[in-house]
């Protein structure tokens, strides 16, 4: 079965006919020629395929294109504006936060989504890890202050790096998180 879908990818609208089995990842890579998001495990375990889907980071390998018709998608390739790299992209270069680079677009997009989540006050298992405290951050309600390295590691645990560049990924993200 085929279906017609419309996506806005990195600011450009596309209309295409896809087999209903096509994932967002395959639609991006095989149909639209956008190879920024990578196919690592193809089972939602490695995070290399992470994109922002309607503003939220998701594993594009598990999202069927037909189920997300009309979505706004941002890949790492769409983060730069006017030829200027995104602050996270600059920080990854400055901190040498990669070796082979295969997981990097997913790491960077995931970090963009993660920092938005933290800014919105979303807790993590580290924030909410105390008994009798749902991570409410005190009486003022849900806030997440400065992210500790443990927070960054927990919130980024869905992105694996087989070169193990974590020791540089965390400081790169922290540099942007702390402005």
């Amino acid at each position: 079965m085929e279906a017609e879908v419309t996506f806005r990818v990195d600011g450009t609208s596309h209309r295409l006919t896809v087999d209903v089995r096509t994932t967002v990842l395959d639609a991006l890579r095989e149909r639209l020629g956008n190879t920024s998001a990578k196919k690592g495990c193809d089972h939602g375990q490695c995070g290399a395929c992470t994109v922002l889907l309607d503003g939220q980071r998701v594993n594009s390998c598990l999202a069927l294109a037909v189920a997300h018709d009309g979505a706004e998608i941002v890949t790492a390739a769409g983060l730069a504006s006017d030829g200027e790299l995104h602050p996270l992209q600059r920080a990854f270069i400055r901190h040498d936060a990669f070796q082979c680079g295969y997981c990097t677009p997913g790491q960077i997009v995931s970090a963009v989504g993660m920092l938005r989540e933290a800014e919105a006050g979303w807790p993590s298992a580290v924030t909410a890890g105390q008994p009798a405290d749902g991570g409410s951050g005190g009486s003022d309600g849900p806030t997440v202050g400065i992210l500790t390295d443990d927070e960054v590691r927990e919130r980024m645990s869905g992105n694996l790096c087989r070169c193990a560049a974590y020791a540089n990924i965390v400081p790169a993200i922290q540099e942007v998180a702390r402005g």
């Binding site: 939602g44 995070g47 992470t50 889907l53 939220q56 980071r57 998701v58 594993n59 598990l62 995931s110 989504g113 993660m114 989540e117 807790p123 993590s124 298992a125 909410a128 991570g135 919130r155 980024m156 645990s157 869905g158 992105n159």
Partner: peptide
Amino acid sequence: LSGASGQLRN
């Protein structure tokens, strides 16, 4: 929050 990853939970 103890399950899956941020991407999957979204």
